[in-house]
Each structure stands twice: as C-alpha cells, then as structure tokens.
C-alpha cells in the first residue's frame, strides 16, 4: 500500500468524439477503501469515464494516476495486471465455457501458464478448489459445470463479479452491476458488493439509486460529460441541481 489517500486520481479528463465532448474536464479522486459511485442521467458520460479510466479509450487530454503512478498511456491489460480490474455493462462472460472455466480464465492470468501450449489443460485443475470458493462466494457453486451462456441473466452478472474477484483486484470498477436484474437479484448483488469491498476500493456506475444509497461512501454526479456535484447521499438528495438533473424538475 502506498501512502496516498487516493487509489485513483483523474485530472482534467477529457474525451472528444468529432467535436463532441463526451467527457469534459473531469477531476475525480477515489479514496482508498471506499465505495465510490458515479451516477447521472443517460448520456452523461459515465461509461465513457469508465472506459477512459480502464484505458479502453484514450483520453483526448488529462491525466490519470493510479496509486500515484501515471497510467494515462498504459494499456488496458497492463493496468489490469497492476490490480485495477473492471466489469462490463453487458454481462461479459465466456458463454461456451463452463462457469468454473470462466473463473479459471481469470485465475490463470497471474500463473504464467498461458503461453504453454504444450501442457495439458489438466494442469488447470489445480485451480478448481479456488475457483469453487469464488463461485460459492457469489452463490454459483451448483452451476459449476453449466455453460455460462445457459445461466439466467442475474447469475451471469454474479459470475462476472466472481471472475473479476478472482484477480483479487485492489481496485474494482463495476459498470452497472445490477442493470436489468430482478429485484431479489439486486439485493443479492448489492450485499455481495458490500461484502467484497472489505479490503478493496470500488468504483461503480449504477442507475439503481437505492443500491447507490445503500453502498456508496461518496457519489459523483455527472451531467453532459461534466461533474455536477460530489458528496455523500444526504448532501446530494438535498441539492436542487441534482434533482433538476435527475428528475427533470426543480421540485419533488
């Protein structure tokens, strides 16, 4: 652990698409050990910020520091190896691999086995116990041999979190982890996020405000690519600008 209070610091983060500013001058600091939520109306640039931070997009200008190290020009895979791992908005599982194999894909990454095309895949069985542990953590232990493509939607999202957790990331970025989920799944995922946040920092984009209020220590509201306001849930609910942006009315 480095001494800095912040895991991630983005300064003046800007992304321009053909003259349109999707993200404009965003300054974002994520405090170590916190759960930080990024909210805002549709098209506010939340996912773009996510893609910029995880280097799936290159910023037009601005600087990103991860643990004090400048990662503005690093590749997505490189920052993942440094402990900053993301999930995706559309559930990103490997549909034709089993649930167990999905988790093993992540577990295999730090092992250095990957380029060994002459080894039998049996060597991967040594990871089964650890993979089962992760599946149990998200309630998927009974589905270990099922192809991920056959899982119901909510379970796919759980699997994605298990896969992300398999890398034991210091900093987890979750893109709408409860989007499109049934109510009971939402509370399960929400509880799961709370549980796994113990020894790490989490940044999440989320539409479900009850999840946000439940989990987040800090909330940043984005609007038209810029930060509207930042604070805890109490502060935000009393802020007229937020109401305006979110409800489209000045009174509620």
């Amino acid at each position: 652990m480095t001494g800095s209070d912040y895991v991630l610091e983005a300064e003046g983060l800007t992304k321009q698409f053909r003259g349109f500013y999707a993200v404009n001058g965003v300054n974002l600091k994520v405090r170590r050990g916190s759960i930080h939520a990024l909210i805002g109306p549709n098209g506010a640039g939340k996912t773009t910020v996510f893609n910029l931070l995880t280097k799936f997009l290159d910023p037009t200008s601005g600087r990103i520091l991860y643990n004090g190290e400048d990662i503005t020009r690093s590749g997505s895979a490189a920052i993942a190896r440094k402990g900053m791992v993301r999930s995706f908005q559309i559930s990103a599982v490997f549909p034709q691999l089993t649930t167990l194999e999905n988790v093993r894909v992540a577990l295999q990454q730090p092992t250095g086995l990957t380029h060994k095309f002459w080894k039998a895949e049996k060597v991967l069985d040594s990871m089964n116990e650890q993979a089962m542990g992760l599946l149990e953590a998200v309630g998927l232990q009974d589905f270990a041999r099922v192809h991920a493509g056959e899982l119901p939607y909510g379970r796919k999202r759980s699997l994605e979190i298990a896969t992300t957790l398999a890398l034991d990331p210091e900093f987890m970025l979750l893109d709408e982890p409860t989007a499109g989920m049934a109510h009971e799944d939402v509370s399960r995922i929400s509880a799961l996020i709370k549980r796994v946040s113990k020894d790490r920092t989490i940044l999440l984009v989320e539409h479900n405000l009850s999840v946000v209020s439940d989990l987040s220590d800090t909330i940043t509201v984005l609007q038209r690519g810029e930060i509207l306001v930042e604070g805890d849930y109490e502060t935000l609910t009393n802020n007229p600008d937020v109401r305006e942006a979110y409800m489209g009315t000045g009174h509620a």
């Binding site: 995880t54 799936f56 997505s76 895979a77 490189a78 993942a80 190896r81 791992v85 993301r86 999930s87 995706f88 990103a92 599982v93 490997f94 549909p95 034709q96 691999l97 894909v105 992540a106 990454q109 730090p110 896969t163 890398l167």
Partner: peptide, 10 residues
C-alpha cells in the same frame, strides 16, 4: 468468445 473481457483480465 469475448476479447475485451480477456483484455480486461490482464
């Protein structure tokens, strides 16, 4: 199956 996901796993 999912190239971006593999990248995101490092």
């Amino acid at each position: 199956e999912n190239e971006s996901r593999v990248t995101s796993l490092g």
